[in-house]
Design a protein around this nucleic acid. Structure first.
Length: 587
RNA sequence: GGUCCCGUAGCUCAGCUGGAUAGAGCGCACGCCUCCGAAGCGUGAGGUCACAGGUUCGAAUCCUGUCGGGACCGCCA
């Protein structure tokens, strides 16, 4: 139980004892830290419901709370706010208790679920770019948060490996090397093991093909034709396609790894493809499919909709499938292979309507209940002009270039500040990459998931204030002071004893971890955990600035402060891990 | 045209199941290293919460409208 849950229960009980609903007992951190640590505004709402005087009512509730020894002070302010301050002994006791376990006061979910998390979506033959960044970063963090809370999570990259771009690639390659065996319809294999294209070829061919199809209708038709043939299983195309996928995947996997993002499954749209005919037959069997201008669609609108939901297109008039079709078939696949309780898609907010269609169709078909399918949408990363991020040349910025950029900046900053001096080149490079990626990831994660944000490299790389490097710096200072204490024979960390205001403030923040984690989990909002991480780093920095630790003369106080520092370090390390941010040991 | 999201400090953004003096970071001004890492800490200035109505004892928060910005709206994925 988190501290707010527990306090809410106690205050709720007090409300119940005076004949009011316990829900009014909800406690939150105080808005006025100068007056108290926690507050409950329930007396006002209760008074309204019971038509009583709020102050008198608050007084009755407070009478029940004042004999709690855990509370140092319970007061009423203004029209009926109940202000609560915990006794230092109680704070110290709570802190001691959470430090005994590995979870450090982190929230554990009462009823864990098996969750399939879909947060990749890169496309074959296209390098990862900044558009993939948010899904990867947010998804990775959610995966870690879910797992820590007790959920069993399977992360799937879900490659975009089965659409029109595949046909475009095939036709583009055919124009360049039409004599390859894959294009000879008379040959049905076997085909060469060596891929006919390199990664560089793919990354060159795809933009070419895409531009050509845009400019020339004939080329577009060719690509469409090739896509349809591939999807029908033409052997040469299938073999060629497998090479495309393998070449691409190796590169994609490496880039994700550099970001600290990993997947349990490397499935793609193509894995679901074979299930489509059977699925379509099932749908047809229950009368779900309708014909519409030659296309096969599933109508998903329902009574009471206040917006129009267009039908989901299962088959286009040329017989090809759409990504709605493959998404449905993917659900079939996931039910069969993993049978999750819940499927969560971490995908750009702009695709909300698409998921609404898919979820409704899945529900109608009896495949998966719509309330266990979640689209966790996120806003776009924009440039300083407020439009989706582009390079100065107007192109898409590759993830690889982005990582290089932040690493370079970090390296420059290290040199500027005279940090990392005397470390060897390999460690310096490693620190620079970690610091740069931490800046990037924290900047992304600390924005609320659903809103767009402006990517401003100068701001993120300033490394001051609310940034990833600030957190890493706090972490490094904890390590440093503890190492110094040990070297000086300062003794072991001991029982927490609160003597200074900075210690009290730090203790309160440390105790707030459970609530931060619960909120981040339940709302799927990692930025709430970022806020806590920043508060923690701040509280530690103030504690560090205001209190002697390693060289404190009083043995009891020194032992307590060493314990506080150690606790801060451990919790910070855990949170950084939950955010998917790697921390250097020193910097 | 329809649906949805957003307009809060000079800048970038929190806060929005209504509640006390609207917060943070950056930037700006001033101060703090004979003391455990100054990428740090402290103090201060800075706001008609887009605008207009409404509901309420109480509105940045809920409702309606206006203006401004953005996203999406069956044969791309």
């Amino acid at each position: 139980m988190t501290i707010l849950e527990e306090l809410s229960r106690r205050v709720g009980d007090a409300f119940a004892e005076v004949g009011l609903e316990s829900k009014f007992g909800r406690v939150k951190p105080a808005d006025r830290p100068d007056l108290a640590q926690f507050q409950c505004n329930g007396a006002l709402a209760a008074a309204k419901a019971a038509k009583q005087n709020p102050r008198a009512l608050a007084e009755k509730v407070c009478d029940r709370l004042r004999n709690e020894t855990a509370f140092k002070e319970v007061t009423i302010a203004g029209p009926g706010f109940i202000n609560i301050t915990l006794a230092d002994d109680d704070l110290a006791g709570r802190l001691g208790a959470i430090l005994e376990g590995d979870s450090l006061g982190g929230w554990q979910k009462p009823e864990p679920e098996k969750i399939l998390l879909d947060y990749g979506g890169p496309n074959v033959a296209k390098p990862l770019h900044v558009g993939h960044l948010r899904a990867a970063i947010i998804g990775e963090s959610l995966k870690r948060i879910f797992r820590f809370a007790g959920d069993a999570v399977v992360g799937d990259v879900h490659l975009g490996d089965w659409g029109l771009p595949m046909g475009q690639l095939i036709t583009e390659l055919k124009r360049e090397q039409g004599d390859l065996v894959y294009f000879d319809a008379a040959v049905e294999g076997p085909y060469p093991v060596q891929p006919p294209v390199s990664l560089a070829d793919l990354e060159r061919l795809y933009p070419q093909a895409s531009a050509a199809c845009k400019a020339d209708r004939t080329r577009a038709d060719e690509a469409r034709q090739a896509t349809a043939e591939l999807q029908k299983g033409r052997p040469g195309y299938l073999a060629l396609w497998k090479h495309f996928v393998a070449v691409s995947r190796a590169a994609i996997e490496q880039e994700y790894e550099d970001l600290g993002v990993t997947f349990d499954l490397w499935k793609g749209e193509a894995d679901a493809a074979p299930l489509i005919p059977e699925m379509a037959a099932d749908f047809a069997g229950i009368g779900l499919i309708e014909d519409s201008d030659g296309a096969q669609v599933i109508r998903v609108e329902s009574e009471g909709d206040n917006k129009k939901i267009p039908p989901l297109m299962l088959f286009k008039s040329d017989g090809g499938v759409t990504y709605g079709t493959t998404d449905l078939a993917t659900i079939v696949d996931r039910v069969r292979s993993d049978n999750p309780d819940r499927i969560i898609y971490v995908v750009d907010q702009r695709q909300a309507l698409h998921f609404e269609q898919v979820f409704r169709a899945a529900d109608l078909a009896g495949l998966f209940a719509a309330d266990r399918l979640e689209h966790i949408g996120f806003g776009t990363m924009n440039g300083k002009d407020g439009k989706p991020f582009k390079t100065r040349e107007g192109g898409v910025l590759r993830l690889r270039d982005m990582i290089d950029m932040v690493t370079e900046r970090a390296l420059a900053r290290l040199a500027e500040n005279g940090l990392a001096e005397g470390y060897d080149a390999a460690e310096t490079a490693d620190i620079a990459r970690k610091v740069g990626v931490a800046a990037l990831k924290f900047a992304d994660l600390s924005n609320p998931r659903t809103s767009d944000y402006i990517f401003d490299l100068d701001r993120f790389m300033a490394f001051e204030g609310k940034t990833g490097p600030y957190l890493l710096y706090a972490r490094v200072r904890v390590r440093s002071v503890l190492a110094k204490a040990e070297a000086a024979g300062a003794g072991a960390p001991g029982a927490i004893a609160i003597t200074a205001p900075e210690e009290r403030a730090l203790a309160l923040v440390l105790l707030g971890f459970g609530d931060a984690l619960r909120d981040a989990h339940e709302k799927r909002l990692p930025h709430l955990l970022c806020d806590h991480a920043f508060s923690l780093a701040q509280a530690f920095s103030k504690f560090y600035a205001g209190c002697r630790i390693a060289d404190e003369a009083d043995d009891t106080i020194r032992a307590s402060r060493l314990a506080l520092a150690a606790a801060s370090g451990r919790q910070l390390e855990l949170i950084l891990d939950l955010l998917g941010i790697q921390a250097p040991a020193r910097m």
